[in-house]
Design a protein around this nucleic acid. Structure first.
Lengths: 331, 331
DNA sequence: TTGTACGCGTTATCAC
DNA sequence: GTGATAACGCGTACAA
């Protein structure tokens, strides 16, 4: 709780000198430096990050924000962990918020970020046209998008090659002989959904398979919608023999629906999910998934943010990481 | 980015008046109030949380810290979610940190909390004698412990009745006919470990079963130690017929070990874990666990913290929630 | 009822 | 080399 003032008094110097000892390697004669350092130790002085933040223009708060839909979703937890580790390594603290896939909550938290004068934020935008984020971008506070991209604003971005992941998933299903493949995607204005759908459609076309519109359903990334939509698909007169489900929670929901109908996976219906699941090996059956390198997404996003903070003029960069098809026993 | 200064200029009043309009319902004549409010709107004024924090003694930062071992552990993710929801409801922001069960990382982050002048923190202490937390408590910044308690300091605390949970788990196992029950606990200086071990021992004694020291192993709460210790137990000349594993990650590790040895659960070895697992129903086999109400732990902790912030003199409170034995198919 | 002025703890720019 | 001192944005005694 000791302030510069008190340290200065104890060391019988001015606060300017103390500050110099702390920050700049300005000219300070060894004796006074020693005296100051002793006072610093004796009082267990620690600079107030708050006062520092108030004084500085920006970029030195050593604080960044992370806004994600839900920390309980392992995909975002993994991203968060990547961000946090990179932040810790650079001695940055992290303001974490859960937006619940709600644009209003996201807007509220963006306000908090602004009011806290964070050095920058990391987030997956609500969708491609996210007005709250676009508006926030105008403040000049650095933004790094993860997972999902923005249509208008060009910001730093770390994403995964969703198109490729979808193509691989579909190629795998098709190689297994499936011709009627159901798609359960997320909200359709989200860039990841768009890309995965494109992969789905191109894969069908590439293998000379017809597109059946009724086999394509859009949910909201949550478990319940996976369950509901899987049931809808299975109620079709000509139901799909395989499901391509576009995120982890919806995959769990879809599997639950299959389970409840006593359908055997993969014999009756095969399933490929997007996003890996924790302890996938312990699941019944272990699901085949397109694994995203979520930890790296988070880590690299934070590193990009740090770069932008120190070098604001740098043109925005897009990092695209590769997903990986992990074949297990649901296909 | 507009400051009080600018709003005042625009409304042709002093900053004091603007501040009054914003904060206190002080006497401000309707006309000037209207003028100020218009200026506020026109400039899209938002108070700087940083400046406010610097000015105020404490308790009004609307910022709290949460330090947990690992956000990727679903138990802590659930607590975090509970804390965050309660914080959001009160318009508090959350500084989140992962301590990785490392006392040094915890100490580092406690420093950050102090430097950030948070209104309070929520955390499960490293162990009962956690010196870093004890030291932090001296700053007077409110602390609410969750999950684990402190031996010396008396702080607000939200915990689960671990003893009772352990007794129920053991009673269940014993009722199934098991007499050789292995215990895989966490670090032994942690309050939860102590209580669960006590439950294990008392259950044995209560049913007239002998204690075999070699059946009791202490790990570090992480998955790998669950695997290693399960293997050690199974390598015993007289191996246990059932395992009581004291947290979620170690349970997963233990199940993996059993799997790898091609042992059937529960036929060859039965398993009860502490902490529920996400998608437990989809696991093979769905594990019997002692479920902790983690979300409520987090929510109530945050609510306790808010109470303490507004009423610092209040004597510390302990809230003890009940766990629940969820019988599934690993026993 | 409203305005002036101070202080919160820093950093940085001047003088000396 | 070192020391005053002016910001940063806000809340609040105190004066008007």
């Amino acid at each position: 709780m000791a302030s510069l003032q008190e340290v200065a008094r104890r060391a019988k110097v001015s606060i300017a000198t103390v500050s110099r000892v702390l920050n700049r390697s300005d000219k300070v004669v060894p004796e006074t430096r020693a005296a100051v350092e002793q006072a610093l130790r004796e009082l267990d002085y620690r600079p107030s990050r708050v006062a520092r933040r108030l004084r500085m223009n920006s970029g030195r708060a050593h604080l960044v924000g992370l806004i994600i839909p839900d920390i309980q979703n392992p995909f975002y937890a993994e991203i968060a962990r990547g961000v946090e580790d990179a932040a810790y390594a650079a001695e940055y603290a992290l303001l974490l918020c859960n937006s619940d896939e709600s644009i209003d909550k996201e807007r509220f938290y963006l306000g908090v970020m602004r009011d806290e004068s964070v050095d920058g934020i990391v987030l997956p935008p609500f969708d491609e046209t996210d007005a709250a984020v676009a508006e926030f971008a105008k403040t000049g506070i650095p933004i790094v998008c993860v997972d999902r991209s923005l249509a208008q604003e060009k910001t730093d971005l770390v994403e995964v090659d969703n198109y490729r992941g979808a193509r691989e998933a579909m190629a795998h299903l098709i190689a297994k002989g499936h011709k009627q493949i159901g798609l359960i995607e997320g909200r359709s204005h989200v860039s990841t959904s768009r890309e995965r759908r494109r992969g789905y459609l191109d894969a069908l076309a590439g293998h000379g398979l017809p597109v059946r519109k009724e086999l394509m359903r859009a949910g909201d990334f949550k478990q319940e919608s996976g369950r509901v939509l899987a049931n809808e698909l299975l109620d079709l007169r000509k139901p799909p023999t395989a499901l391509f489900v576009c995120n982890n929670l919806m995959t769990v929901g879809a599997l639950a629906a299959l389970h409840q109908r006593d359908l055997r996976v993969p014999r009756d219906v095969a399933v490929v999910g997007f996003d890996d699941l924790p302890w996938a090996e312990a699941l019944d059956p272990p699901p085949t998934v397109v694994r995203q390198p979520a930890y790296d997404v988070g880590r690299q996003a934070m590193e990009l943010l740090l770069k932008r903070i120190t070098e604001p003029g740098r043109p925005p960069v897009t990092v695209r990481l590769l997903p990986e098809l992990v074949v297990r026993r649901s296909t």
